[in-house]
């Protein structure tokens, strides 16, 4: 999926058990990196949505609640659309 997916451990330098361990480590780190990338995207999206006024030293009450709800509603939207598309596809068949 991502450009880095499927990164391989250099084989010659490690025995089989170590290679497996490193592959597992890399897979885990890649999963973490993907989630971190999602957090960056969400912050970007939610900042644009919620921080509309000028910048003061603290977030306003509205901005705080908007940011708080933004993640869950974005993910809700994503699930909703996914379902909708699935249903539309089912109707076609």
């Amino acid at each position: 999926m991502s450009a880095t997916a499927g990164a391989q451990v250099p084989q010659a330098q490690f025995d089989a058990a170590t290679q497996r361990e490193l592959q597992e480590f890399i897979d885990q780190e890649q999963a973490k990196a993907k989630m971190a990338a999602t957090v960056h995207e969400l912050t970007d999206t939610c900042w644009k949505k919620c921080v509309t006024g000028s910048i003061s030293s603290k977030f306003s009450r509205n901005e705080v609640s908007c940011l708080e709800n933004c993640v869950d509603r974005f993910l809700d939207t994503s699930f909703y659309i996914l379902n909708e598309v699935k249903q539309q596809r089912n109707q076609l068949h």
Partner: peptide, 14 residues
Amino acid sequence: LYAQAFDHISQKYY
């Protein structure tokens, strides 16, 4: 503020 929003959103997402 951006760092604060990032922390907050990261928490919410996880």
